[in-house]
Amino acid sequence: MSDDIRKQYPPDGNPRETFEGNRFEDARMQRVHDQLMRERPEPSENFAPLPLALTVLVMFLCVWAGLYLAKYTFEFDPFHYNEDRAANAVADEGPKEVDMMALGKRTFSQNCVACHQQDGQGQPGVYPPLAGSEWVQGNPKRLIAIVLHGLAGEVHVNGETYNNAMTPFGRLRDQQIAAVLTYVRSTPDFGNESDPVTEDMVAEVRDETSDQSEQWSQDQLDELYPIDG
């Protein structure tokens, strides 16, 4: 084995290489270097030219990229979000109309439905109904006040007595409160047919009752906002 190595790697004048070459003769060293000796040479590269088909593919991609960017960059407008819409179409639309019934229905199902139920019937003896209720179809300000600050203690609705508590929803925006009350007062799901509630009315009551820190009692409400007031 060592003779083979010598033949393969005859020592030349370079002292370092001669030293390395001598080390290769040691039998144990050779076994240590078995792995290295059977390795192929370190990697290198040939210089084949780029395939023509690849160049064509790259050209095609560049053209596509140019067309795409020309169509969908909208002059780098930072306020243009929708790729499907042309640049100036957004400005022409003006402020978007809010569907109060849709917003109201959504607000209702996120906040009210757990107690008052999908059909607005409440739960007998526990939560008063909204459908057909004289409270709901009466003075809208009374209704706004209840949503803003909640309600506690004994209440009488449609001749039934309920004793429970309703949490305040003052955290909702004026628009959401107006929408949910408009929905509750006029949705055919409940059979109610009263006038809509506007954002201004909500803002007004919010302002008037800003000192109220607790949930209302029925007596307080009857005094401030009577049902047929």
Partner: peptide, 27 residues
């Protein structure tokens, strides 16, 4: 998402252009 459309377009174009290095390495 609510990101300026040109940023998304640039990302889309760059992602598609990634075909070039991928095909080159594959070849």
């Amino acid at each position: 998402g609510p990101v300026p459309a040109w940023v998304i377009s640039a990302g889309t174009v760059a992602s598609v252009m990634m075909v070039i290095p991928v095909v080159v390495v594959a070849v």
